[in-house]
Computed example of a mutant assay.
Amino acid sequence: MQKFEDILHTHGDYIVRLCYTYTKEWQMAEDLTQETFLRFYEAQEKFRYEADVKTYLYRIAVNRCKTYLASWRYKQTQLMQLGQKLIAKEDVALQVEQKDESMQLYEKIKKLPVKYREVLVFYHYLDWTIAQIAQLLGCSENTVKTRLRRGRQQLGQLLEKGGAMDGPDY
């Protein structure tokens, strides 16, 4: 049986890099790595070493990452970062002109049901692939494609009308 410190030193860098591939943020990858090793430490007595420790840690880390990526907190963070990136990239004069247009578009996007809004933002603003979005949302790639198409259609209707969507916001 390996000591916990040995396991931490042997697999720590690997788990951080694994978490980073999911989150694309070093700070969050480090936090998720800590959670992974905390979970392993708490369950270490139950671990029978029939499987490789690396495989076991990998599974814990992947589950922690998926839980984080599916959380509303993560989605909110991504939307806020997107807004900050868009503002930081633009020239100040152009910013003032485009801010009104962006706010109008953002207001229209906010009126879409969440299932369409999130795929539009992840696909068009965050440049995620259909497969990545499907994995994040826990649905099929065809479902993501359908939501993208319907979201674009509804957004187009909103932009043509200049009005609000009827129906509940879910």
Rank of each mutant, 00 (worst) to 15 (best):
C19L: 01
L148A: 01
A43G: 08
D127T: 03
K111N: 15
K115R: 12
T10F: 03
A164W: 06
Y116W: 05
D13P: 11
Y125G: 14
G156K: 05
I133T: 02
C65I: 02
R150P: 00
L112C: 00
Y56D: 08
L158A: 02
R150F: 02
F47G: 09
K3L: 11
V16M: 04
Q81M: 08
F47D: 04
H124W: 14
A29L: 06
I130L: 07
A51F: 11
V53E: 12
L136W: 00
E97P: 13
P113V: 01
R152N: 12
L82R: 05
L148N: 07
C139V: 14
T55Y: 03
E101Q: 15
G151I: 00
E118P: 03
L86T: 09
E160C: 05
E45M: 07
Q95C: 08
G83N: 06
L8R: 07
V121F: 00
K110H: 13
R64L: 07
D6A: 06
E107A: 11
L82G: 15
P113F: 00
Y74V: 04
G156E: 10
Y125E: 15
V16T: 03
L112K: 00
G162A: 02
S71P: 13
R149S: 14
K110D: 13
V53C: 07
I109D: 09
R39I: 11
Q98M: 12
F122S: 02
E45H: 08
M80E: 12
P168H: 05
D169T: 10
V16L: 07
L8A: 01
R39Q: 14
Y116H: 08
R48M: 10
I7D: 01
S140I: 00
K89S: 09
D166H: 13
Q44C: 08
L86E: 14
Q104L: 10
M1L: 13
E97I: 11
K24T: 07
F37V: 04
T129R: 05
L148C: 07
G151S: 02
V114K: 13
E35Y: 06
Y41M: 10
D100L: 12
L69W: 00
C65E: 02
T146V: 04
T146N: 13
M28Q: 14
E141N: 04
Y14N: 12
Y170A: 06
K110V: 10
